[in-house]
C-alpha cells in the first residue's frame, strides 16, 4: 500500500510558523520551569498509556518524556517543534486531536454537516406541519392574548347581552 508522506503539510505549516513566530519564550540556556513543560505536555497524550494527557501521567516513561520536553525547551525549541518531534517519534495519536488532513478531515466535517442536515430536516418537517395545519383550519378566530383586552371584550359581551 502506498503511503503518503505523513506530515509534509504539517512540516510546511511548521516552517511558516518558525519563520513568522516571535522568538520562543524559553531562551536558550535557561532552565525551563515545570509550568512551561506542563503547558506543552498537557497538549500531548502519553504514547503508551492511551487517553491520558502527558502532564498527568504518573508512569516512569512519561516522566522521561516530560524530561525530553524540558531538554528540548532548554535547547531553544519552540512548542510546535516539540509537538512535531513527538508526532514523528510516536505517531499522530500523541496529539489531542488528529491533524486535519486526509481521512481525518472527516472528524471535523461530519458533525457540523450532520447537524445542519438535522436542522434542515426539522425545519422542513415543522413547515410542512404548519402548512397542513393552516390548510386544515383556514379560519381561526384570533384569541385575544392581552388579559386587558380579554376583560374588555368580556365586559363588552356582557353589555351586549
Amino acid at each position: 500500500m502506498h503511503k503518503t508522506p505523513p506530515f509534509l503539510s504539517i512540516l510546511a505549516v511548521l516552517l511558516l510558523v518558525i519563520l513568522l513566530a516571535p522568538v520562543p519564550t524559553a531562551a536558550q540556556g535557561n532552565e525551563p520551569t515545570d509550568d512551561e513543560v506542563n503547558a506543552i505536555a498537557k497538549q500531548l497524550y502519553c504514547p503508551v498509556c492511551e487517553n491520558i494527557p502527558l502532564d498527568v501521567c504518573p508512569t516512569q516513561a512519561c516522566r522521561q518524556w516530560r524530561e525530553t520536553i524540558r531538554e528540548k525547551l532548554a535547547a531553544g525549541w519552540s512548542e510546535e517543534q516539540i509537538k512535531q518531534y513527538f508526532v514523528e517519534q510516536y505517531g499522530a495519536s500523541v496529539l489531542a486531536t488528529p491533524p486535519a488532513k486526509g481521512i481525518n478531515l472527516l472528524v471535523y466535517i461530519l458533525p457540523p454537516a450532520a447537524f445542519l442536515a438535522g436542522a434542515f430536516i426539522l425545519l422542513r418537517t415543522l413547515r410542512s406541519w404548519r402548512q397542513a395545519t393552516i390548510q386544515a383550519e383556514p379560519v381561526v378566530p384570533v384569541q385575544p392574548e392581552d388579559p386587558y383586552i380579554a376583560r374588555l371584550e368580556k365586559e363588552l359581551r356582557r353589555r351586549d347581552g
Binding site: 497524550y45 492511551e50 494527557p53 505517531g91 486531536t97 486526509g102 481521512i103 481525518n104 472527516l106
Partner: peptide
C-alpha cells in the same frame, strides 16, 4: 468511533480528545 475507523481504514491510530 473515529479512532477505530481510522485504525481500520489507514492503520494509523489517532486520538480524538477534549479539544474536539
Amino acid at each position: 468511533l473515529f479512532p477505530l475507523i481510522s485504525e481500520l481504514a489507514t492503520g494509523q491510530k489517532v486520538t480524538v480528545g477534549p479539544p474536539y
